[in-house]
């Protein structure tokens, strides 16, 4: 337990709206270890991005964050002052955003923006910071790194900018990196490069990595553990092998059925889809949030909140009334259909 770089217990994010309270994230608990990649998977609007902003302490002002525990490297960051949080951000944990095209300030050179990050947190000279920037730019695969320092963001392609963003989060050697859909805005060919780069760097620098994405192909390749989110809750969590090999929650099963798997999915076979839409998260909610779209829904599903329970293997858990055996049968049927 002591190896947890990030420990989150019962994290909730509510956003007050004129029509009621929007329960964007509810009762989220997870942890990330040093040298481990946790993937948080889910559809747009399921609360993944708010989760990352909640950990960073960068939520919009009106959002309300509560939790039983929020610890980074053993330090309580739930009750930390804003000034302490700004010391932590960029130093102990960094974040990479979805839009590399707009995430860098157009008015300053990338060298300026890289050096500024380090000088904010470490007592180094400009020259030392510049050397570190060059070292990291080379690490993230940018050629002619020293001359790139004087370039402006608009002179770089999206892929290069995302590499610069990655280098920027590494400037102070953080314990944890949160990457929020880091490849969504990039060309498909670049996506794989950036992901592999992230995975590689994470191992090399022995950091924790939270990879937030809606791209399951990505997850299968780089994640150690996976948390599947639906409508603000984690519905299934486990190692990548567990979640992909033995999906237990009907939503996870449905998701995996939507993806063609090379060698497994037969040519001409129809891919699955999940009928219905995500429920509104405004107002009081009870029962299983997936019940409306679930093929296996029972009357009990809507009655009371469904708790998180362990599946048959250690480290694998899910949020459903079905037993692991029933789920396995359902999964088998899906595969056969």
């Amino acid at each position: 337990m002591e190896n947890h770089i990030l420990n989150v217990r019962n994290l909730t994010v509510d956003i007050p709206l004129p029509s009621g309270m929007l329960h964007a994230v509810q009762g989220l608990s997870f942890h990330v270890d040093r040298g481990e990649t946790l993937a948080i998977v889910g559809e747009s609007g399921c609360g993944k991005s708010l989760t990352s902003l909640a950990i960073m302490g960068l939520l919009p002002k009106k959002a309300i964050r509560t939790a039983d525990l929020l610890e980074l490297a053993g330090e309580d960051i739930l009750n930390a002052t804003e000034s302490r949080m700004s010391d932590i951000r960029g130093s102990l944990m960094g974040m990479i955003f979805q839009e590399p095209m707009t995430s860098l300030n157009p008015a300053y050179t990338i060298g300026n923006q890289l050096i500024e990050t380090m000088r904010r947190h470490r007592p180094v000279s400009v020259d030392e910071a510049r050397d570190r920037a060059v070292f990291l730019l080379e690490k993230v695969g940018i050629t002619a790194a020293r001359s790139r320092l004087t370039q402006y963001p608009h002179q770089l392609s999206g892929g290069l900018r995302q590499r610069v963003m990655i280098a920027m989060t590494l400037m102070c050697g953080p314990d944890l990196i949160i990457a929020d859909e880091p490849t969504t805005a990039l060309d498909v060919t670049i996506q794989a490069q950036i992901l592999l780069l992230l995975a590689e760097l994470q191992k090399e620098f022995d950091m924790g990595l939270i990879l937030i994405t809606h791209d399951l192909g990505v997850v299968a390749r780089v994640a150690d553990r996976v948390a599947v989110m639906y409508a603000g809750q984690v519905v299934e969590e486990g190692s990548a092998t567990q979640v992909f090999g033995r999906p237990t929650h009907p939503y996870t099963q449905g998701l995996l059925d939507c993806i063609p798997i090379p060698g497994k999915t037969e040519r001409g076979k129809h891919l699955g889809s999940i009928p219905g839409i995500v429920p509104s998260l405004v107002g009081n909610l009870s029962g299983c949030r997936f019940a409306d779209r679930c093929q296996h829904a029972m009357t009990d599903c809507s009655a009371a909140d469904v708790g998180f329970r362990p599946a048959s293997e250690v480290g694998h858990a899910y949020r459903c009334l079905l037993t692991p055996e029933q789920s396995a049968q359902n999964a088998a049927k899906l595969g056969a259909a």
Binding site: L58, S86, F97, S103, L104, N105, A107, R120, M168
Partner: peptide, 26 residues
């Protein structure tokens, strides 16, 4: 409300630097 201001805050820059160096300049 731009992305690069969010980046600047995520880097841990102090509010003064975010406001004057990154926001006002643009």
């Amino acid at each position: 409300s731009s992305d690069y201001i969010r980046t600047a805050r995520a880097k841990g820059l102090r509010p003064v630097a975010v406001l004057f160096k990154h926001a006002l300049r643009n």
